[in-house]
Simulated scan of single mutants.
Amino acid sequence: MKNARTFVVTGASGGIGGAIAEAVAARGHRLVLAGRDGTRLAALASRLPASADPVWVASDLATADGRAALVTACTDAGGAGGLINAAGVGCFAAFERMDDDRIDAVVTANLTATMQLTRALLPQLLACGSADLVNIGSTFGSLAFPGHAAYSASKFGLYGFSEALRREFADRGLCVHHIAPRATDTALNSAAVNALNDAMGNHSDTPAVVAQAVLAALDAGRGGRHFLGWPEKLFARLNLACPALVDKALAGKLALIRRHLP
C-alpha cells in the first residue's frame, strides 16, 4: 500500500464500512468517516488508533447537502487521497410489488449517490497524484438473482461505473478497484434474506473478510475486479460467459426463492 494518506470511508456506521475503516486505520492512514448514524460513527472513531486522527460526518449522501458536508470535511483534513464507497442498502423483494419510491431509494443509495460523491471528490483525488478509489459492489452486480431486481440493477451499474472510471483515468494516477463480496453478515440482511441463505446453503462472510480483500487490493497497487467467495466467484464469471447455464440453474430454485420473498 502507498504511504500514509487520508482515506474517506462511506457507510462507516455499518458493518462492512466499519470493518474497512478499522483495517485501513491499522495501516497508519488517516480517516474521514461518513454515515447516517452519528452515535455509531463516534463509537468507531473512539476505537481507532490515534494515528488515524479520525474525522466523522453524520450525513445522508443521497442529498446534495450531505455530500457537500463530507467534501468540506475532506478539504479541512488536507484533501482526500483515497475514497472507499461502502455505503449502500439491500433489497430482497418481489419486483412487481415494489413502488417507485423504493426503486428510487435503492438505485440512489447504491449507485447515484456514489457516482455523485465520487465526482465531487475527484479534484482532491486527482490532486493527490496517486489515489485509490474502491467501490464495494456485490456478486449480484454480475450475477443477477431473482428477488433482487432493483438491487442487482444498482450493483450492475456500480460495476460498470467502476470499469469505465478505471479506463478513463488510467493515465491520471487514479487506481480504481471494484470489490464484489458474496453474502456478508451485516444488519443490512433482512430476516427473509438470512432464511433464504440458510435454505439454499449459501455461505456468508464476516465484514472482516471484505476488509481484508480491500487491503489486498490496495497492496497490489493496481486497479481491477475482485470477486469474493467460492463458488460465487465461479458462478459470477460463468454468468458472463454463458448466462443460459445460470438461467437454467436458477429456474430450478424459483419456487424456493418465492417462498422466502417478504
Rank of each mutant, 00 (worst) to 15 (best):
A249S: 14
A105Y: 04
G221A: 08
R102D: 14
V246L: 14
I16G: 03
G28N: 06
N189F: 06
A249H: 10
G173P: 12
G78R: 07
G229H: 12
A131I: 02
G129E: 10
A131W: 15
A191K: 11
A153Y: 04
A62F: 00
A94Y: 11
L254Y: 04
D76M: 03
C91A: 10
T206P: 02
P207E: 07
N202H: 09
D99P: 01
Q124L: 04
S204T: 14
M98T: 00
V214L: 09
A251F: 00
A170H: 13
A93K: 15
K155G: 08
F140H: 14
Q124T: 01
L228Y: 11
I16D: 08
D100Y: 05
W56T: 07
A164M: 13
G66E: 12
F95L: 13
Q212W: 01
A211E: 04
D205L: 07
M115C: 11
A80M: 08
K155E: 13
T108N: 12
A217V: 01
Q116L: 15
A86V: 06
N202G: 04
N110A: 02
C175P: 06
A236T: 14
C74P: 06
A26W: 02
H177V: 02
T186S: 03
A26L: 06
L133Q: 03
T10L: 03
F161G: 01
A12L: 05
G79I: 12
G14N: 02
L83I: 11
A68S: 10
A131C: 03
N110W: 02
A236P: 03
R67L: 01
G229I: 00
A199W: 09
E22L: 10
L256G: 08
A255R: 15
R97G: 00
A249W: 11
G35T: 04
A87Y: 06
L44Q: 08
L48D: 07
V209S: 15
S142K: 04
C128V: 00
A127Y: 03
R27L: 01
G129T: 10
